[in-house]
Design a protein around this nucleic acid. Structure first.
Lengths: 233, 233
DNA sequence: CGAACACTTGATGGACTTCAACCACGGTGG
DNA sequence: CCACCGTGGTTGAAGTCCATCAAGTGTTCG
């Protein structure tokens, strides 16, 4: 998938552009507030006043979109270097919820201060805009996957994506621990958890990965990628 | 530029915030170039250099995400007041393609000029940022729908959305002509065109709408909305 | 230790896809 | 003018994949 010089895999090039931000400089304009999170803790609820963005310093969170009739949809997972809350920019209240999957730490960036900082630091403005655009591309890649891939392929694609994100953070792309439950993966991939479970064991049977609950070992990276693309085999 | 108090229905509040832009003012900074489009004409192809955003002045276009293996996914439809190309901000090349569904006119806004204009006009910067965030919310709403609704409900939801967009443009929300083929609707909704066709006739049988090919009359707005939400009945 | 939760696996049914035929419309050219 | 063809849309029948229901295993934590 050339098409795009860098950003080859648009889903991995994601908002992590924010990771290399100069926080010392930023702190001159914005009072950065640290928050520790425990597993299952809400960072913010849909409907709460939108007042800040959040930079993930450690841990993993999920964002959940919910309808008034109770339907819910996991729209993404965020790790170190990712920005949270950007989807609510321009609103008075958060459009979705963010929940920690494990303990971790986020840095709160009050939005009004960010706005003024953006005027002083064109670089910051550019990064924020880039993060927003990147989020759109990530979502579109998701649409493509969910709209065109079957269950096994979606799960394979998800694993390839997770591996790439770990690699980007300096961890192993070959061996990692999933941070989310099967239910969360399933919801994100528009499947049921039983289907995800079966897909995982199938990928295991095919010797593409070795799974044991949340522990994943990538045995055949190329094969997994082939599966993640539309390849029938 | 209100910061939109409403946006209850995030899918309809969309990027049209750009519609009320002061183009006379903008023209001082940006050379706005008009382009006529005919049906099926590409405004830009994925992979082409990204150099401008486009404001839709008339007509309707679809944006299409494509994978190297040939899979493709319609990620949205754009009408008057909508902004095109924002998903490629931060890249050198367009991340997706944009195709006209009928004849129309778009206004090209060269991106470098837009960037400098944004420095001079904070209002413009705010609108661009808001448009990006709104696009994310639209995409997340789509994810929620595709992830949780069955075929009939998705089609109902789509029609409610289209009706709202027409209403916003001053047209009838009760009687309109769809601009896209069944295949495009189906692709967008992650279904097959036969399924969309069947869903449409089912909604017709239920007296929620009256369909004849692309012509749609909304007979029971409340019922259609109920169907579009997760209501079983 | 036991209860709650997460995950796996099996059996069944249903919703959507696939394949196929048919119809309606619009344009073209004989 | 109308036969002809291509495209888009509808409808039917059969097949497939995933959801659902259900049971059972493993793990974690009070």
């Amino acid at each position: 998938m050339n098409m795009q010089a860098e950003a080859t895999d648009t889903r991995t090039a994601h908002a992590a552009a924010f990771a290399d931000l100069d926080f010392d400089l930023l702190r001159r304009y914005v009072q950065v507030i640290r928050h520790k999170l425990t597993a299952d803790q809400y960072l913010y609820h849909a409907g709460q006043p939108f007042q800040a963005l959040y930079f993930v310093h450690s841990g993993c969170l999920k964002t959940v979109e919910l309808a008034d009739d109770g339907r819910d949809q996991v729209t993404g997972f965020r790790m170190r270097g990712d920005l949270l809350g950007i989807e609510s920019i321009g609103l008075r209240q958060h459009a979705c919820s963010a929940v920690a999957l494990e303990q971790g730490e986020v840095w709160e960036l009050p939005y009004p201060a960010m706005l003024t900082a953006c005027r002083e630091l064109p670089e910051l403005q550019a990064k924020l805009t880039a993060a927003l655009a990147e989020q759109i591309r990530q979502d579109h890649a998701w649409m493509l996957n969910v709209g065109t891939l079957n269950a096994e392929q979606r799960v394979a694609s998800f694993l390839v994506d997770v591996a790439a994100r770990y690699a980007r953070l300096g961890y192993s792309a070959r061996h990692f621990i999933l941070r989310m439950r099967r239910t969360d993966m399933a919801n994100f991939l528009a499947l049921k958890h039983e289907t995800v479970s079966r897909a995982m064991t199938r990928l295991d049977d095919l010797r593409l990965i070795a799974v044991e609950r949340r522990e994943v070992r990538v045995l055949d990276d190329a094969g997994l990628r082939r599966m993640a693309a539309g390849c029938a085999s």
